[in-house]
């Protein structure tokens, strides 16, 4: 199952490391990632596509626990991603 996540977090040098580690450790493969930092807002915006047999909520709940994460949204699941690919 593929899922598309949108994540907002406070800017910090190691945030992407934390995020990617959580994805791997919790059993999700990162298919694609785009990260942009808005210096004015001091925030990082990440668009992430992950793949796993596990329910996506197992990952999103763990991402929400990362200190500095302000928003996690699961935008699309597998069918929509295929349709728009």
């Amino acid at each position: 199952m593929k899922s598309l996540l949108i994540i907002e977090a406070q800017k910090s040098p190691e945030f992407l490391e934390r995020l990617l580690r959580v994805c791997r450790h919790r059993g999700f493969t990162v298919d694609s990632i785009n990260a942009e930092t808005a210096n004015i807002k001091q925030s990082t915006h990440v668009t992430l596509t992950v793949c796993s047999d596990r329910d996506i909520s197992l990952l999103t709940k763990q991402i929400e626990k990362i200190v500095g994460v302000t928003q996690v949204a699961t935008l699309q699941q597998e069918q929509n991603i295929k349709a728009t690919a």
């Binding site: 329910d55 909520s57 197992l58 709940k61 763990q62 929400e64 626990k65």
Partner: peptide, 8 residues
């Protein structure tokens, strides 16, 4: 207290 434990 930990949401991540629910349904894990």
């Amino acid at each position: 207290i930990d949401t991540a434990e629910i349904d894990k």
